[in-house]
Amino acid sequence: MNAHPALTARQHPVVHVANLVRSFGRGPNILDGLDLAIRAGEFVALLGRSGSGKSTLLRTLAGLDEAPAGTVTVPAERAVVFQEPRLVPWKRVWANVALGLRTPDARERAVAALSEVGLSHRLEAWPLTLSGGEAQRAALARALVREPKLLLLDEPFAALDALTRLKTQGLVASLWRAHRPAVLLVTHDVDEALLLADRVLVLDQGRIGFDLHVNLERPRRHAQPAFASLRSRLLRELGVEDENPVEPVEELRTPVRNTAPAAPTHRLEDAVWAASADALARS
């Protein structure tokens, strides 16, 4: 795990799910006795084949889906970013971010959040005039302005073009570093999960079938042998055979020794950028 000093103090779980069962209609149980704990400030990625119940789990944690059985404990301060930005088209960008804030300084907070995602020049814009990447950044600002203890990301990069996706991933990484909410990222993309997350879970047959601690030092790069090895492992868990399987490296069998907090020069978004550049070069 990351040995960020501020983090060790609050490593109790903020999300606790026990024996969660969910089915739709008379179908089989989509979630079938699922257990999950997420610690404060932890970045968890959730992988799974389509239809495996990833989104159902996220929606349950978001309070959008009632679980018929099981216990679910989540913090009240939650925020969700969906695959689509879901901005309200008739409210200007800043008003979208301020929506639901009940403090008198709502506008100032919205403006601050928007400048954090690099949209301070689009405060008064109508959402339908934003590009896909801008709209998703506004959605991120709208989530972060609520200072969530749990940030739920439902494939937030899936609808973005390749370049915008890389930039937005970098943004999410830096926002997470700055605010340290616990994050649950639902994604299809193994590389994305490995670049961003402390832990990668694979949902299979209604339970967490595989729980991988990503002990890779940040910044992470695709080119790292350990990265490629983890990638092969995860793909195998997902039932996809990697074309160029990489044998597990020794480094992975024993967790990487806790290193000192990343040097200030190691900015995570740079790392993602670098990794992204690798990804681009390979594609």
Binding site: A79, V80, E84
Partner: peptide, 10 residues
């Protein structure tokens, strides 16, 4: 979806 998003915004 907008109504749902509104719900998550409290």
């Amino acid at each position: 979806k907008l109504i749902e998003a509104g719900g998550t915004l409290g």
